[in-house]
Design a protein around this nucleic acid. Sequence first.
DNA 1: CGGTTGACCAAGT
DNA 2: GACTTGGCCAACC
Length: 108
Amino acid sequence: MNNTPDSFSEACYELLRTVPKGKVTTYQELAHGLGCRAYRAVGLAMNRNPYPPEEVPCHRVVKANGELGGYAGEESEKQRKLENEGIIFDENGKIQEFSQRLHRFSEL
DNA sequence: CGGTTGACCAAGT
DNA sequence: GACTTGGCCAACC
């Protein structure tokens, strides 16, 4: 691993980049993977989103309770992208089998 | 350099 | 079940 995160935000993007397609992660898990509880700071970094979605799939980040969460552009677009990746939403706008789709960061 | 904000979370009412 | 409050911590003004 040859990455030296210059800042918290960059670390978020790096970690988010490791999330495979067809899976989602939450702001909380991201922050937890970074070793902090700054869920809000993660969202802040996403709102800034200095990187394009091709490098950092920010649309794969959802809320901890299984809902869509927010998006810099339009939230329907975010949901559309997730559906395109294989994520299914119910009428409530929640992810089906959320815990199953949730990618968790391992330390090994 | 201090106070406000925020793509959040959880518990309480 | 919806709404309110407090907390968390980095980034912004």
